[in-house]
Simulated scan of single mutants.
Amino acid sequence: MNIYVSNLSYNTSESELNQAFSAYGEVTSTKIISDRETGRPRGFAFVEMAQKEEGIRAISNLNESELNGFTISVAEARPREDRNTNSRNSFNSYKRY
């Protein structure tokens, strides 16, 4: 089960996240998302757990809990939506004369 964790302290490490979630079951991966340009953490992460039941238990116990002085939000991750390239380049979508 893939879990989305938000409102993380920029000082939170992947090992700290792994430790918090492993109290509820087997963690298969932990990934803190970083800014592409600066490399600094963006304040959210994804945690993958081996069993869905363990993930549900982790979500219910860790959502709105405190980690490194921040109240974190924990929820099941949703699939990534396709990005519409036309919305980025709406200028190019106008007819040229």
Rank of each mutant, 00 (worst) to 15 (best):
N2V: 07
Y4G: 07
V5W: 04
S6R: 12
N7R: 15
N7I: 14
L8T: 05
N11P: 09
T12C: 09
S13C: 09
E14G: 06
L17F: 01
N18E: 12
N18V: 06
N18T: 09
A20D: 08
Y24E: 08
G25I: 04
S29N: 10
I32Q: 01
I33A: 01
I33F: 01
I33G: 01
I33H: 00
S34Q: 15
D35K: 04
D35C: 09
D35A: 06
D35M: 07
G39M: 00
G39A: 00
P41Y: 08
P41G: 10
R42W: 10
R42L: 12
E48L: 09
M49E: 01
M49T: 00
A50H: 04
A50C: 03
E53L: 10
G55R: 02
I56M: 06
R57M: 10
R57K: 12
R57W: 03
N61W: 02
L62H: 06
N63E: 07
S65K: 02
L67K: 05
N68V: 06
G69Q: 06
G69T: 07
T71V: 15
I72Q: 04
I72R: 03
I72N: 02
V74D: 02
V74T: 01
A75C: 13
A75W: 12
E81M: 14
R83I: 11
N84M: 10
T85Q: 13
N86W: 13
S90V: 13
F91C: 13
N92Q: 14
Y94D: 13
Y97G: 11
